[in-house]
Design a protein around this nucleic acid. Structure first.
Lengths: 117, 117
DNA sequence: CCAATACATCGTAATATTGCAATGAACAAT
DNA sequence: ATTGTTCATTGCAATATTACGATGTATTGG
């Protein structure tokens, strides 16, 4: 009757090791799109190609720190590139990574639709 | 010099009202895919078409409560249907909603790739 | 009726996410 | 040099997510 070892370890943290590489990759990229502000940001950058944080902030109506934070999340996932020019940082879509997302998504659809459709 | 009204309201909650309907819809569906377990579940259900929580739980190696919780998240987003038969609940892909996700994703790609590619 | 099965839900603990004011760094302009 | 601009980072508060044991309900099998 051991009620020991009920110690809560790894509480609140996703168990990524249980899943395949490509499943984790898709989850990471989907997480970028799981917040509407990040979708709006990607839409905006895709439309202007070479954008500043202050302009994005003004467009999506979130504060500069919040906008910057979202930009870092997108960049860390690989969907954005950036380049400093003077005091300005220009953000651009990383087209290669966007293509990767596209193919992972395609793969997900093919697997999921396999026998149900 | 009013340091009043610095009261933290709406802290920690997404400002969905700032974004368009379709952006929010895509974000909601992307949130489903933002956890690897939920991708694995959808893959599995798409493959077997009519699955039980216990079998999914055994396959993805998460506890029954955790698996059930993920299933409710996916179902609430509309990507799953379910039907009770005796003591068993059979889960199936909601093909219409999956198609909706596909088209929202397509739309996102077209907007984002507009001028950068 | 009684045990076993399948599942959702509750409660709880730990971590993650979201948002912004305040701050500091780097550069531009005067 | 001083001021203004642009941005990332820090610190904090509030909410959301993740995971699972324990529990209750409903059904099946004996």
């Amino acid at each position: 009757m051991r009620t020991e070892n009920l110690i809560t370890e790894n509480m609140g943290v996703s168990k990524r090791h249980l899943h395949t590489m490509s499943v984790n990759q898709l989850a990471d990229l989907a997480k970028v799109l799981s917040h509407p502000a990040r979708i709006s940001i990607l839409n905006y950058i895709g439309d202007c190609d070479g954008c500043l944080c202050k302009d994005i902030s003004a467009t999506i109506k979130l504060s500069q720190p919040t906008t910057s934070q979202h930009l870092q999340v997108i960049k860390k996932a690989g969907l954005l590139k950036s380049k400093f020019e003077g005091k300005s940082q220009y953000y651009r879509i990383n087209v290669e990574k966007l293509g990767k997302l596209k193919s992972l998504f395609q793969e997900f659809f093919e697997t999921t639709e396999a026998k149900c459709c």
